[in-house]
Design a protein around this nucleic acid. Structure first.
Lengths: 215, 215, 215, 215
DNA sequence: GATGAATGAGCTTTCATTCAT
DNA sequence: GATGAATGAAAGCTCATTCAT
C-alpha cells in the first residue's frame, strides 16, 4: 500500500476534491472517461489492487493525463465517491418526498431494493465506502451521509417520532439495507431471492413498529 | 498490492494451510507469536497495508524466520483465519447444544452479542474475512462456514423446519449479526447502544417467526 | 527534484544518519561500496542529477540493496557528509595540536593547501556541502563545524586573543580557504598556481595580523 | 533532474539566447514578467527545484505562453543570467571609469560591497551562476566575464602592471568578493559585520600591494 | 533452523516539452 | 499568439520473496 506524500486529512470533503478542474470541452470528456475507468478498476481489483497505470490505460489516456486532473489516487477515489454520494442523496430526496403518500409495504420495498440496485450498478461504491468509510473520529463520512438521508425519509414517514429516536431507527434501517445488498451479492446462497424477501419483510415490520411509536 | 511471481490459486484451502508444522515446542511458540503479531498488524493496517517485515519485527523474529513457517503472506492470513473460524465453530457448537433449552430472547441476545464480542476481541477477523471473504465462485469461504454454523443453531432451535428454509433464515440471521457489529463499531452513532438493542429485538422477532413455521 | 515523503528536519545530525546499519560482514562491505559509488555520482552529476538507480548500478548492487541501508537519497548524502566532516575534524585536530609549534608561514600554507587537497580528493564534498550547507536557521551545519575547527586552530595559534575575535577571524580564514579551492578548481585561469600562492600570502598576512592583536 | 529529449549543448551561448524576440510591447512586458517570476522561483527553489509550470503560474501566464518565449528551461536561465551579467558589466564599467580618481580605501569598499549588494538584490544570480558556472572546458562562462570586469578595474587602478599579473590579481580579488558575499549571507556568524569589515581590510591591503608592483 | 542481505518488478508521482484549439 | 490538455520517460521508493552464511 502506497501513500501519497502530502498527508491528506483522511476526509472526503465533498466539493473541492479535484485539484484541477477541466476548462475545456476535451478536458471534461477526459475526466468523465477517467472516472468511469477508475470505477471499473476499483470494482474489479479493490482500492489497493487498482493502479493508476491501469486506470489510465483503461481510459485510453496516458498516465500524465490522469495526473493532470487527479493528482493522487486518493483524489480520484474521492471524486468518484462524491459522485456516488450525490446520486444517493438525490435518490433519498425523491424517496423522502414520496414517503408521506407511500404505503409502508411499498416504502419497505423501495428502501430494500433501491440501495440494492444502486450497489449493483455502481459496484465500486462498496469498495470505496469500505476504504474511506471509516474516517477519522469527528469527521463526516459516507456512513453519516447515508444515515442522514435515511433519517430524513423516516422522519417524513413518521413525522411525530422524536429526532433522537429517528436517528437510532435510521441506523438500523441502514444496516438492513446493507444486509440486503450482502445477501444479494452472495452467489453462494441458494435461496438468496427468498432471503432478500425475508429481509424486506423484516424491514416492513420495523417500519410499522417505528410508525407506531408514540410522539 | 504486491503479488508473488508464481501466481497462486487465490484460494484459502482451509485444513493444510501451514507449510511446515513445527515439530518442537520452540516452533509452536514461535508460530503463536507470529500469528499474534500478524493479527495485530492486519487489524491496524489492513491486509495490503501489512508487510511481512512488520509482522516479523513485531513478533521479534527475523524475516527469514517468518518465511520458514509461512511461505507466503496469503498463508499467514489463511492460518489466522482458520484459527478464527475454528473458534467460531466452537462457539456455534456450544450454542447449538444449548439452543433447545434456551429461551428465544436469550438465544437472540446470544446470537447478537457473541459475534459482536468475537469481532471486538479479534479485530483482524473483519479485515481477513473482507479480504478473503469473496473467494472465487465454487470455493468454500468463511461466509459459508459461518452460515453453516448458524444454520445448525437454528436447526437445533427449530428442528421441525425444513433444511432449505433453515438455510434461508440462517442467511438473514447472519446479516443481522453483521449489522449488530457494524452498528457497534460505528462510533459516530450517538445512540448506538439503543440501536443494538433494536437489532436484538428484530432478531428475537425473526427467531420466533422462524419457530412458528410449519414443518 | 524529488523529495522524500517523510519530511526531514533538514539537519544532518551526525551520528544516526543510517537507518539500518549492517550487521554482517557482507553488509559492511556493501555499504562501503555504495558510499564510494554515491560519492562519485554526486561529484560528477551534482545532487539532483544523481539518481539512486545510478548509484546502485555503479556499486554493482540492486536498487533494493541500496535502499536496505539508505532509505532515502537524503540519507546517503548525509552518511557521506558525516564521513567527510569526521575526516576534516580529524585534520583540524592534528593541525590544532601542531599549531603552537608551527611557523606562521607553514601554518598558512597548511591551512590553504590541506583543504585544497581534501576537496580535490573528495570532490563530492563540495556538492553536498553546497546542498546541505544552508540548513534551517538555528541548526548546526557543516559550515559551523568547519568554522569551529578553524577557530580551534586559531585559538591554539593565538591563545591570548578573545574568543569573539577568534570567531570573526575564523570566518574570514574559512573563506580564504574556500577561495583557494575555487581558484585551484577553475581551469580557465591561466596563472591559477600563482593565484593560489597569492592567496597563501594573504592568509599569512592575516594570521600574523591576528597574532599581533592585543589579548 | 529532468533533461529534454533532444540533447542540448549544455552551453549558454550568451548573445542570442532568446528564441523569439517579441516584436510588440505586449511581448516585451510579458517577457519581463516571466523573467521576474523565473528569478523568484530560481532563488527560492534552486534550478532543479523550479518547474516551468511554477514560473508560468507565478507570472500569471499559461505554460504555453512561457514556451512561446523560452523554448527550454535552460534558455530562460540563460536569459536571466545574461541580464545579470550585463548589469554587472555596467557596474564594472562605471567602477573602471572612476577607478583612477578613487582612493584605494574607497575602491576596496566598492569592490567588496557592490557585489554584495548585487547578490542580495538578485538572489537568483547565485543559483544560476552555480548551476551554469562550471561550463564545459573552453566555453565562456560567467566566471570569466566577472574576471574580465574585475581585471579591467584593476588595470585602470594600476595601469603600469603587466596584464598577466593583473589577471592573477583579478582572480584573487574575485574570490575575496565572493568571500564577502558568503560571510554576509551566513546568518550563523555572530560577528558577520565585523568579518565583512575584516575582508574589506584584506582587500585594501591587497589592492595596495598590487599598485606597489613594479611595472 | 535462524538470520539478515539481496533482488527486481512494479508502484505512485513529476515535469519538460509538444499539440490542438 | 494564447491557452490548457496530452504525453511518457524517468525518478524515488516498497516489499514479497529468495539466498547465503
Amino acid at each position: 500500500m502506497r501513500m501519497p506524500s502530502q498527508k491528506s486529512t483522511g476526509t472526503l470533503s465533498a466539493g473541492s476534491v479535484q485539484a484541477k478542474s477541466p476548462q475545456r470541452a476535451r478536458g471534461h470528456a477526459r475526466v468523465a472517461v477517467l472516472l468511469e475507468a477508475a470505477g471499473c478498476e476499483f470494482a474489479e481489483k479493490g482500492y489497493d489492487g487498482t493502479t493508476m497505470t491501469a486506470i489510465a490505460a483503461r481510459a485510453g489516456s496516458s498516465i500524465g493525463s490522469l495526473y493532470q486532473f487527479f493528482p493522487t489516487k486518493e483524489q480520484i477515489a474521492g471524486a468518484l465517491l462524491e459522485r456516488y454520494v450525490n446520486m444517493l442523496a438525490e435518490t433519498f430526496r425523491k424517496l423522502r418526498e414520496a414517503a408521506p403518500t407511500l404505503d409502508i409495504s411499498v416504502l419497505a420495498s423501495r428502501l430494500t431494493r433501491t440501495f440494492l440496485k444502486f450497489r449493483t450498478s455502481h459496484p465500486a461504491f462498496a469498495v470505496l465506502a469500505e476504504t474511506y468509510g471509516t474516517a477519522l473520529p469527528g469527521t463526516s463520512s459516507i456512513r453519516e451521509d447515508l444515515h442522514g438521508g435515511i433519517a430524513s425519509v423516516l422522519a417524513a414517514m413518521a413525522p411525530h417520532v422524536a429526532p433522537a429516536e429517528i436517528a437510532v431507527r435510521a441506523a438500523v434501517v441502514q444496516q438492513l439495507m446493507k444486509a440486503a445488498v450482502a445477501i444479494h451479492g452472495d452467489a453462494a446462497i441458494a435461496g438468496r431471492k427468498a432471503a432478500v424477501d425475508e429481509l424486506e419483510g423484516l424491514m416492513q415490520h420495523y417500519l410499522r413498529d417505528t410508525i407506531s411509536l408514540a410522539g
